[in-house]
Design a protein around this nucleic acid. Structure first.
Length: 169
DNA sequence: AGCAGGTTTAGCG
DNA sequence: CGCTAAACCTGCT
């Protein structure tokens, strides 16, 4: 299993990516030092690194945080130790397109359950945020919760909509 | 069994 | 409107 850390500028934090054959987790790690003094893998290092899943997803994530419209459809994820229901919720969540938003209610509808809170619970266990875009699932009136903190969720949503607008205009 | 959770809806002031 | 209570389903103890 390998780990790589990239800097997510729009979020003001870093992202730690773990995986072997498939991606296992992504994790937000706060900046402890001032920008510029932090020791991060350089772009070149990341880009030229060959083709295990971690490197591949790192590349995609760097593009994503650079403002490109990236869906992580090609990247394979491993959902270990989750129930069938939770996997179903997360797989469905993966289908939400860039910039699009769904309410917990709507997502529950797609899954085919009335257990809206159960859907929220499943999302809370998402081991691979960003790649599995659980931040695109919001409350009907409001934003809803986020394991990484609601502020992060807001930033992500703003970031994506801004990039969509950019693309239009 | 009982409880809590990234919600939703209805009911009431 | 804003607040509270109850209902929904799933997972953990």
């Amino acid at each position: 299993m390998r780990t790589e850390v990239i800097y997510a500028k729009p979020l003001g934090c870093c992202l730690k990516i773990k995986g072997g054959e498939k991606i296992v987790s992504t994790e937000f790690v706060p900046l402890k030092h001032k920008l510029g003094k932090i020791d991060l893998p350089s772009w070149e290092h990341t880009v030229h690194r060959s083709c295990d899943s971690v490197a591949a997803v790192s590349r995609e994530l760097i593009r994503y945080f650079g403002g490109e419209i990236v869906d992580f459809s090609s990247c394979e994820v491993k959902l270990g130790s989750l129930t069938i229901f939770e996997k179903r919720v997360l797989e469905k969540t993966r289908e939400i397109r860039y910039g699009q938003r769904l309410t917990y209610l709507e997502l529950a509808g797609l899954i085919g359950t009335n257990g809206i809170r159960a859907v929220g619970n499943a999302l809370a266990k998402n081991p691979i945020p960003i790649v599995i875009p659980c931040h695109r699932v919001v409350a009907k009136n409001g934003i809803g919760g986020y394991s990484g903190g609601v502020e992060l969720k807001k930033k992500l949503l703003r970031f994506e909509t801004a990039n969509m607008q950019m693309l239009k205009g």
